[in-house]
Design a protein around this nucleic acid. Structure first.
Lengths: 339, 339
DNA sequence: CTGAAAGCGCTTACAG
DNA sequence: CTGAAAGCGCTTACAG
């Protein structure tokens, strides 16, 4: 069994209060007793148990991250940012999965009630305003990533604007019949991107053809998977009057779409959304979401809020940047498509 | 402030023991008192604090995962498996990062001494035998992924064998001058893969040319990054007598290598190692590591061990499977390379 | 500088 | 079926 503060106190001939003090770097301890305690602790492999400290201090120094099980590369890159940033503080990270079902709110509440974290970062947890409000009563520091609620700090990317910019890039290159590969149209990010896509076409006076908005059959992770993009692009290229260029709701789907174009031997310009780490290497033009930075910022905001509860709520909305690569080559007059 | 067991007990007119019993589903509680307690708990948004439960039970129901900050896609896919599997149990996941420096052992020990987890999963933490042994004294359930020590449960993939199979695939297709893109040659997985590569060439009676083993300049994450593969392939193709085929230590580097081949307009057959989720979509022939399954297995083994301390130690070594895709097309007689 | 004691929010024998 | 009480391993005023 691992030793406790009592074992150390006994061996060192001091009280447990003193042992506690040396581990908490309280100034008023003789150098001599400090050394003695430390020596014995080292010998017995002792260190205060975080669990007991947390209870006594009423502070766990844990940040809980809640993420739907449909965790994807987006989450992974956000997590990387959180990990790197939290290393600067004396906090640890705990991850909770919620199933993306109708009782999302209850699942989230349950996690909060159990009280592991001093603060909570919710990534891509999509709730209604009144549901967010009901979370408010726990008076916990909360930061939302990829969502918006006026009562909590939020960090997100403007999907509508991003989709608009992406689509517009295609328009500016001279394309008119522009299709879109969407994901689950009921999911928030998907919905916003469809909106931005439509708006860009409308503003340019181009046709918005509902048949040109397609998605695949695989709805795992709300359709944000390679195979969904593959299926969608196959459908798109099989249409009698296929689009001459395409905006794709995510990089991961774009990867599948590119394979479909290869298989169909029909390559059309493509711009996607995310800018995952590998996208540079497949030459994908895309709207860059600063995922890593969002993760870092979330940690900063949350830790700051655990310290100053009354700080003003802050909403950070990033504008995604258009990163042009080889999947949208310069427009060369006429396009090689069927129809 | 959030309510405690005392608040509920007072409101319900029972003792805290009774409240505790209803939340622990102890059988002997009248249905009537149970309902009363639950009603009040619901009203006050009460649920037992996990922290206090853990201390009282001496069981945290937390599994701690230790991973170097150089976390990469390998870790991500393992994590996915762990997340999905842990959902079946009443455990939560906590993630700790260690910096990949000389005091890896101390960092790991510190995490264990703090005692959050009931058990520990260490991913890609590479220590010496005597260092592992020193961890043994904590008598904690430990599972190692991507490492081996006789005293702990371990889960790994045979890198030597995998590299052998990969290289042999190229040999069987008729290639003789086979190069290798390695990562940091001092990192264990890298070392093993170089060994398997060499052994395959030797067994086939082919030349092992040290100059054909190259790595890039970017040693972030031990060189397991896209840009490293890009740089390495550029070097390889610039050699006066360039290899006619290549084994690459990881999929992520292969992505960079493919871009280099595109830029150099010189495509040689390539087989990599990992089989990341997206690799199928870039048509990469590779040695598949069952990362997701490894994550799942690690959770199963660890939870099983927390329950039966005296279970026999188990070492699971997966043989990576060769997944053939378009990056290694059929050998067509003569090869188109310089030299 | 150091110790005795209360308290953090629970669980769980032990009685009844 | 229920309660009083001890205990989990610490921290932290309060005295001295």
């Amino acid at each position: 069994m691992s030793s406790t503060i009592y074992d150390i106190a006994r061996e060192a001939g001091v009280s447990i209060a003193t042992v506690s003090r040396v581990f908490n770097n309280t100034p008023n301890v003789t150098e001599k007793t400090r050394e003695k305690v430390l020596a014995i602790a080292d010998e017995l492999g002792y260190h205060p148990k975080a669990l007991a400290q947390s209870l006594a201090r009423k502070k766990s120094r844990i940040i809980s991250v809640v993420v739907p099980v449909i965790s994807n590369y987006f989450f992974m890159e956000v997590l990387a940012g959180m990990q790197d940033k939290i290393a600067e503080y004396d906090y640890d990270l705990q991850i909770f999965n919620v199933r993306d079902s109708d009782n999302l709110l209850q699942q989230t509440e349950h996690i909060m009630k159990r009280g592991w974290g001093e603060g909570y970062i919710l990534i891509s947890v999509h709730l209604e305003d009144k549901e967010w409000k009901s979370l408010d009563k726990y008076k916990l520091p909360i930061v939302l990533i990829d969502e918006y609620f006026s009562g909590f700090d939020t960090i997100s990317v403007d999907s509508v604007e991003g989709a608009y910019t992406a689509t517009n890039h295609l328009i500016e290159q001279g394309y008119k019949r522009i299709g879109m590969i969407s994901a689950n149209p009921l999911a928030k990010p998907s919905m916003d991107r469809i909106m931005g896509y439509k708006r860009a076409l409308e503003d340019a006076g181009h046709l918005v053809n509902p048949e040109w908005i397609v998605t695949g059959d695989n709805m795992t992770r709300d359709g944000f998977v390679e195979s969904n993009g593959y299926e969608a692009m196959m459908k798109m290229l099989e249409k009698e009057k296929a689009p001459e260029a395409c905006f794709c709701a995510s990089d991961i789907q774009a990867l599948g779409a590119i394979k479909a174009m290869r298989d169909k031997k029909n390559r059309i310009p493509l711009v996607a959304f995310d800018d995952l780490e590998f996208s540079e290497y497949v030459g994908l033009t895309t709207m860059r979401q600063p995922m890593y930075e969002m993760g870092q910022l979330a940690i900063e905001r949350l830790i700051s809020r655990t310290k100053h509860k009354e700080e003003d709520i802050r909403h950070t909305v990033f504008s995604p940047d258009l990163i042009i690569r080889s999947s949208t080559p310069e427009y060369s007059g006429y396009i090689n498509t069927s129809g």
